[in-house]
Computed example of a mutant assay.
Amino acid sequence: MPGTETFATAGVWRKSEEFGTCFSMVMTESTESEAEGVHSRMPVLLNPADYTSWVSGSPEEAKALCNPWSGAVTIEATDQLWARC
């Protein structure tokens, strides 16, 4: 997010006997921004004012936050793969 050093994405996690702590970022369709040129979906980005609702609210409140981001985004591409081969 332009002008900020850190930001939060929506995620879920659970403990697994087989893998330990497992997590996933919650995704939504891309906005009409730079993100759309990279992929058809993007992480759900949370406004700081929504952090408490995401962490402590009801499932319905959290689901209501799962929308494409309406603000500006900046994409910094790297040549590093995100998956182990």
Rank of each mutant, 00 (worst) to 15 (best):
S53P: 00
S33H: 08
V44T: 01
W69T: 07
E18G: 05
E34K: 14
R41L: 01
S53H: 03
V73P: 04
G3F: 08
D79N: 07
F19I: 01
I75R: 02
E61W: 07
T21Y: 10
T28C: 14
T78P: 02
L45E: 01
A35W: 04
S24Y: 01
W82D: 00
G11W: 04
V73R: 06
V26A: 11
P68M: 09
M27A: 11
G11P: 02
T9N: 01
P68C: 09
E17L: 14
R84Y: 09
F19S: 11
L65I: 12
C66I: 13
M27R: 11
D50L: 07
T6F: 08
C66P: 03
W82F: 01
T4V: 09
A49G: 00
M27F: 06
M25S: 03
L81H: 04
F19M: 08
A49Q: 05
E29H: 11
C85A: 11
S33N: 15
S24K: 02
P43K: 04
F23W: 08
W54H: 12
Y51P: 02
M25N: 07
V12Y: 00
M25H: 01
A49R: 03
K63D: 13
A10P: 06
M25G: 02
A64E: 11
E17T: 13
G37R: 10
Y51F: 15
E5D: 14
D79V: 00
W82S: 07
E76N: 12
W13T: 11
N47E: 13
E17W: 10
A72N: 14
M27D: 06
W82C: 00
S30G: 09
V12M: 15
F19N: 13
E29I: 13
A72F: 00
G37C: 00
K63Q: 14
P48C: 09
T4L: 08
F19K: 12
T31A: 15
A8F: 07
S16D: 12
T31Y: 03
S30K: 08
T6H: 11
V44L: 05
T4P: 01
E17S: 15
M27G: 11
S58Y: 03
T6R: 13
C85H: 11
S56V: 05
A10F: 03
Y51V: 10
A35F: 05
V26D: 06
S53I: 05
A8W: 12
T21E: 13
E60S: 14
I75P: 04
H39Q: 15
S33W: 04
R84P: 00
S24I: 03
W13R: 10
S56R: 12
G71V: 12
W54N: 06
V55I: 15
S30P: 11
L46Q: 01
G20I: 10
K15S: 09
H39A: 13
R41G: 05
T78S: 14
R14E: 09
V73W: 00
E34I: 07
D50C: 02
K63I: 04
N67A: 14
A83Y: 00
P68S: 14
F19L: 12
A8I: 00
V73S: 07
S58C: 09
T52A: 13
T52D: 15
W54F: 07
M42Q: 14
F7E: 08
V38N: 08
A8N: 10
Y51R: 12
E76G: 03
G11T: 02
A72E: 15
A62C: 11
R14F: 06
K15F: 11
H39V: 05
E61T: 06
E32T: 13
T4K: 14
V73D: 03
A83S: 05
V26Y: 07
G71I: 08
V44A: 01
